[in-house]
Design a protein around this nucleic acid. Structure first.
Lengths: 249, 249
DNA sequence: CCGGCACATATTATATGATTATTAATCTCA
DNA sequence: TGAGATTAATAATCATATAATATGTGCCGG
């Protein structure tokens, strides 16, 4: 069997993109002006080529803008491409806020029920099989840390893929990232048993080709998550605790 | 009054990103292998710095990947970041397909009703004012080419902004691009009078704070567009005509 | 005191050439 | 035949130089 090709993605440039991306989203450059190319190079011990290429990548993601004489600067947050997986990841991992997680979950609440409905309408056998597989993994998973999370993610990924719609599928990495954070968070509050039952409901409806029921089931599933999040953002004690825990990861 | 600052965005690098992006999405490199850095530089008359930085930007958008000895290559289409405004624009403008437009509209059908509901629930006076303004512009607009389109886009933009949710707002440039194409297309088929009435319905519901009605109204609005598109993709005559017209723009 | 205009200047943009690191492909030898 | 060494192609990185471009800044005339 073919060896799982190891993607490098660990060049100086990519490393710098990661570092800078995280620094930017955490607001490190909100007070001090963004350094010039030369300063950046010196600070990170990279040549100007590497620096420039990293800056260009961040520009492509909407985080930076550069003009001669004026220098490079962080773009206003409204222009950041939140739908870029890297940007969302940096934000959720490095500048966690219940507000942001809630807003993203609001979008999930729009997307995932529709995805379930599309999957049910499409009724692709193979795709449904993969959803079922995800659910099985959830049931089989012990109380460890990693596997239950991976299984849950596999379930949602499979639903998105089953839509046969490239844009829904494209949301997968975003939802993955948010789920990882989200699960870490909701697990604190309630057990997983009820969750599995709800997931089962979604699968049943999709397998039965009942789009409407699938959408409703998925809506209640995601809606519950959103409810937990918004509830927590009022009782700020929990919120702060999670924020701290996440930031330190 | 402050002069409208002219964004440059017309450097060699950005120009090359545009050219290459369009070439890539149109499948120009599906048969021949992607050129090496040196070849690219010669072909486009740019230095290697510019070439490399453009390639890096396209890498950030998921269109390219590069490894030593193996060279640069176009990533499989599934990995393209369709949610990047540039990528979507290149695809819709240079490689128009009813299939893609339909898939995007399916996503709009998930997003926009939810956005309308959120806007209604939020009931931000000022934001609703901007929606109303968009509608007024639609009514006032003559039969010219540009203004009605701009007004329609302003309406949808205002609704997305009124959600107060950054992710919904982030979808704005994508929906703008798709709308421009979409309108160009649906106008061929039916007049605009009915459209205005539907838009009015959405505004009324939002202004009344009736989330459910707002969602329903928006759903029927977008649903109609989707119906037109899917209907057209069966009778391929129209489809081909639009495709040609779009490609030549 | 004010407004406009030329100009110096800091910074990014572009160009060029050389060197290094990586890795697919090839070759060698047991 | 297969494992290990070698080769070669290519991106990655570095270093340096020149060009383009805004943005103050100061001068001048009113």
């Amino acid at each position: 069997m073919a060896l799982p090709r190891i993607p490098r993605e660990r060049s100086l440039t990519y490393g710098l993109v990661e570092s800078l991306g995280q620094l930017i989203v955490t607001g490190a450059y909100d007070v001090q002006p963004f350094p010039t190319e030369g300063q950046l190079s010196r600070q990170h011990g990279t040549s100007r080529s590497v620096t420039r290429e990293a800056v260009k990548m961040l520009t492509a993601k909407g985080l930076l803008q550069a003009r001669p004489r004026q220098g490079t600067s962080v773009t206003p947050e409204a222009q950041w491409n939140l739908l870029d997986p890297d940007v969302l990841r940096w934000l959720l991992e490095r500048k966690f806020s219940l507000q942001l997680l809630a807003e993203f979950t609001e979008m999930r609440l729009a997307i995932e029920p529709a995805a379930a409905a599309l999957a049910a309408a499409r009724a692709d056998r193979e795709a449904i099989g993969r959803i079922r597989e995800g659910l099985k993994r959830m049931k089989a998973a012990g109380q460890g840390e990693d596997e239950p999370v991976a299984a849950d993610i596999a379930f949602h990924t499979a639903v998105l893929a089953a839509t046969g719609n490239r844009f829904f599928a494209q949301l997968d990495p975003l939802i993955n990232t948010a789920l990882r954070i989200s699960i870490r968070f909701t697990n604190r509050i309630k057990g997983r048993a009820a969750g599995i039952a709800r997931h089962e409901e979604v699968l049943d409806a999709i397998a039965a080709g009942d789009a409407e029921r699938a959408a409703l089931a998925m809506r209640s599933l995601v809606g519950e998550v959103l409810a937990l999040i918004t509830a927590a953002s009022t009782q700020s004690g929990t919120a702060r605790k999670v924020a701290r825990r996440t930031a330190s990861t």
